[in-house]
Nucleic acid binder design. Structure first.
Lengths: 168, 168
DNA sequence: TTGGAAAGTCAACAAGGCTGACGTATTGTC
DNA sequence: GACAATACGTCAGCCTTGTTGACTTTCCAA
């Protein structure tokens, strides 16, 4: 089995690592992310919210009772930045901030009924697109999709992704 | 072949469409995109640029001589927004704007030598991460990754992704 | 030739990042 | 009991990057 530069098998097996393939992957991320956020963005706009509000609502829904500090480490923004968003959500009655029972310095965040409804509306829209893409591409592709994305994350942030119930 | 709710084959084959699977997909996109932009962001920051500059440089490199209008349709922002970015890039000598020969209203955009160098530096960083993720996940996964992302794009924007030399 | 459309530029504003400084309540430690 | 550390909130001010509105230059078609 010669392995020269002209060997078709060799070039084929490495084809997915050529600069052109990598560029395609980069642009795929760019354009897909646009689609990924497009539907929620439309809903948010009519309510006067932005993506920052969506992120907060999403992760409060995922981890009810989470603290401000925990949310900060997930979102990777400053507390001043998060606070601005959180304040409007609390004022608008979408999020409730409860003083911690063990540690009264902490604030535990929960979605109100209205907050839960908005979360549902946003995630329904986003899931619809994700479901369509998954169905279109098939189960095998979904495995690959997840594998590549997981490998693309910063290692020190990956635990936020896998921290929940493992195996799902 | 009964198809009851307890049938393992059925639930397994549809497992990738459960709400929990979709939520994982959504968060995978969120965290992966953060990693995807992290390396270029660091380079851009030390130069006083942002992601908007990166996007402009990337697509001018991909399509030398492209017009401002064409760039607008790819990037999906207003021309005023793009213009601000473009102006600084031109002032800094990274991009050259040439008046169109047929239509003198048009401006054809090219990277200068310095612009090409910056593009190289940015895309090297981003390709390194993409390459690592591709290698980690394997060729089969890359196929799936691309299939899912392509299905996630807005149909009317997808042509920007596949418009180049097909089959690469 | 003139009026509309198209390409691009300038001005001003808003969202949402950031840093820095500071205040307050609470907790834990010496 | 004093004191440092922690969790959170807030004010001020900056930057990037999105927006709309008003404008010029250029082209083309009636």
């Amino acid at each position: 089995m010669a392995d020269g530069p002209g060997n078709p098998a060799t070039s084929e097996s490495l084809l997915f690592l050529t600069d052109e393939q990598l560029r395609k992957g980069i642009e795929a991320m760019f354009f897909a992310y646009r689609g990924f956020t497009a539907d929620p963005d439309r809903i948010l706009e009519e309510l006067g919210y932005g993506r920052a509000h969506h992120r907060a609502v999403h992760f409060i829904h995922r981890s009810p009772g989470t603290t401000v500090n925990n949310l900060l480490s997930i979102l990777g923004v400053t507390k001043q930045s998060l606070n601005r968003v959180l304040r409007t959500l609390i004022e608008d009655g979408l999020v409730e901030s409860r003083v911690g029972r063990q540690d009264r310095r902490e604030r535990h965040l929960h979605l109100t009924e209205a907050g839960t409804q908005l979360e549902r509306r946003l995630s329904d829209a986003q899931r619809d697109r994700m479901r369509h893409a998954f169905r279109q591409a098939g189960p095998e592709a979904v495995i690959g999709f997840r594998a590549v994305l997981e490998a693309m994350m910063d290692p020190e942030l990956r635990h936020h992704y896998t921290a929940l119930k493992e195996g799902n």
